[in-house]
Amino acid sequence: MGETTAETRTRMTYAERHTQLLEVARELIRQKGSDALTLARLAEHAGVTKPLVYQHFGTRPAVLAELYGEFKARTHVALDRTLSTAEADRATVARIISDAYIDCIDAESTELPGIAGALSGSAELEDLREEADAAFSARCCRALEPFTDSGHLPEGSMQAILGAADGIARAIVLGRITSSEGRTALAKVVAAVV
């Protein structure tokens, strides 16, 4: 028997395949928008069967929710990394928080609005937002509390920071302001709130 010209397929672990499918989904959204993402298209673009995609995600919102969760997780990692080496002054910490948030917006500006839009009104997105906001708030509070008079950052203050971050991110994505303007504005808000 002679060799065939067909490529030999390599088997991936479940985790490797899951990562690959998320990367393909991200690329599909980047190229064609979130409306183009269906589980069937994801399977086609990944070169796998539809049942395999359903096994990994089950629903389209589940794919979108994972992509949104990954974005928020990257924001937290960036924030943790830079805060661990930060100088101990309010302006520097405020700038680090601003930069970490805006860096992730810049990196995800093509996909994130479509993902959030596709999930809008869903319970999944609300749960993800609450979890992500709580995690981001906890990190910010730990970093900012040493600069408060009471040693505590009130919940209302943290909500002001989150609101400003979301509003500035939306303005950047829509092209109303530049990333640089957004960084400066958010850093000023964070420092002022503290």
Rank of each mutant, 00 (worst) to 15 (best):
A164V: 04
A187T: 10
A100I: 08
F57I: 08
V194G: 02
R30N: 01
S179Q: 10
A165L: 09
R95S: 14
G33I: 01
Y14W: 14
A171I: 06
T38D: 09
Q31C: 07
L39G: 00
Q31P: 02
T19S: 09
T184C: 10
D149T: 01
P113D: 07
L37A: 01
R142M: 09
L144K: 10
A78E: 14
L79I: 09
A86C: 11
K72S: 14
E70W: 02
P61L: 10
L28E: 04
L21A: 05
A138W: 00
T178I: 03
S120V: 09
R183Y: 04
I161W: 02
F136E: 15
S120D: 11
R9H: 07
L162Y: 03
A78T: 09
L112E: 12
Q55P: 01
L79C: 09
I105H: 00
G117L: 03
R17F: 00
K72D: 13
R142F: 01
A118H: 05
I115P: 04
E66H: 06
L162A: 10
A185Y: 07
R90A: 15
F71P: 08
A138F: 02
I115A: 04
L39F: 03
P113L: 02
G58L: 06
L28K: 02
D35C: 01
P154I: 05
A88F: 03
V77A: 15
G175P: 00
G156N: 14
D35V: 09
E87F: 00
S150W: 03
V24M: 00
A123V: 11
E145H: 03
V193Q: 09
R11E: 12
S157L: 01
A165N: 06
D80A: 14
V193H: 06
G2W: 06
Q55L: 10
S84D: 15
P146E: 08
V48Y: 02
I105K: 04
C104D: 14
E87A: 12
S179R: 10
E87G: 07
L21Q: 06
K72Y: 09
A91F: 06
Y101W: 15
T59M: 06
E124R: 13
A73Q: 12
P146D: 05
Q20I: 05
H18R: 13
K50P: 04
E27N: 07
A43Y: 02
A164T: 04
P51K: 07
T4H: 10
A91Y: 04
M158K: 04
Q55R: 14
I29K: 05
I177A: 03
R81M: 13
R41S: 11
R139W: 00
P146M: 02
F136H: 15
L186N: 05
A169H: 02
R129C: 08
T8S: 09
